[in-house]
Simulated scan of single mutants.
Amino acid sequence: MAIYRFRISFEDFDEVVREIDIKSTQTFEDLHKAIHRSTGYSAEKSSSFFVSTDNWIKGDEIAYLPVQRKIDRGVTLMENSKLNKFIEDPHQKFYYIYNFDRPFDFHVELIKIILDTDPNIEYPFLVKSTGEAPKIIEKNNFDAVAVSSNPVSTEFDFLNEMDFVPEDTEEIEAMGGRGINTEEKSEDAEEDSDDTDEFADNDFEDEEYKEDDY
């Protein structure tokens, strides 16, 4: 019985790598769960392997906990799919998407075929682990993570609750600093307006008077 050694890396975090030995007769579900024993993620998430080209173009899908539309379409299930049924190349590649709700994409590549099993090893077996898997932001802790990464947002929430409007306050403070009373200024403006109208009327009366003189 052959042993497959797969190299698994995050598509967006290529410094995080796992290498896993697994029996050729084990299933994609076994590989899926082995990957997440090594990342610390929950394996009970809807995920899929895709038979891939050398350029990571996705082909046939092999799914775990698929949504109903995939079931209706007759998608291949991981628990029913042995690895050796999908290995057509000694460097076979699979594109792997973990957790479709908040997905991480992986590159999975067959890097070695070992012809004999080791009776002292329980497969799947983690051969190599490099880098720490990135943390998953779940819906129930997203707000807490956002606040901790942007503490200013908490301050603005507090100010908004107090009906604080920074722009108006700055303008009022600036006017007060120059000794301007906004209420008096408004009253003065009304008086100036009245005076202007009065002068305008007087000028009109003077013109009428001059015409009578002539």
Rank of each mutant, 00 (worst) to 15 (best):
A2W: 01
I3Q: 01
I3V: 14
Y4C: 04
R5Q: 06
R7P: 02
I8C: 00
I8H: 02
F10P: 01
E11I: 15
D14P: 13
V16L: 06
E19R: 05
E19L: 02
I20P: 00
I22E: 03
K23T: 02
S24W: 00
T25V: 13
Q26C: 02
T27I: 01
H32G: 05
H32N: 06
K33I: 02
A34C: 07
S38W: 00
S42D: 14
K45G: 02
K45C: 02
S46E: 11
S48W: 00
F50I: 04
S52V: 06
N55V: 10
N55F: 07
W56Q: 07
I57Y: 09
I57P: 04
R69I: 15
I71F: 13
R73V: 13
R73S: 15
V75S: 00
V75I: 15
V75W: 00
N80M: 15
S81M: 08
K82N: 13
N84Q: 14
N84D: 14
I87E: 03
P90T: 08
F94K: 00
Y98L: 03
N99Y: 07
N99A: 09
F100I: 03
F100D: 03
D101I: 08
R102S: 08
P103K: 06
P103H: 07
H107P: 01
H107C: 05
V108Y: 00
L110Y: 01
L110C: 00
I111S: 00
I113Q: 02
I113G: 04
I113H: 04
I114S: 08
D116I: 11
T117M: 10
Y123M: 06
P124W: 01
P124S: 09
F125A: 06
F125C: 06
F125D: 04
G131R: 04
A133E: 03
K135W: 08
I136C: 03
K139F: 14
N140K: 09
N141K: 07
V147H: 11
S148A: 14
P151F: 10
T154R: 08
T154E: 14
D157L: 12
F158P: 00
D163P: 03
D163Q: 12
F164E: 11
E167C: 09
D168W: 10
D168R: 09
T169A: 08
I172V: 11
G176S: 11
G176I: 12
G179Y: 05
I180S: 04
N181D: 09
T182I: 15
E184S: 13
E184M: 13
E184I: 15
S186C: 12
A189F: 09
E190P: 01
E191C: 12
D192E: 15
T196A: 13
T196C: 09
D197F: 06
F199Y: 09
N202I: 14
N202Q: 13
E205L: 11
E205R: 12
E205V: 13
E208N: 10
Y209G: 08
K210M: 10
K210G: 08
E211I: 14
D213P: 02
D213Q: 09
Y214H: 12
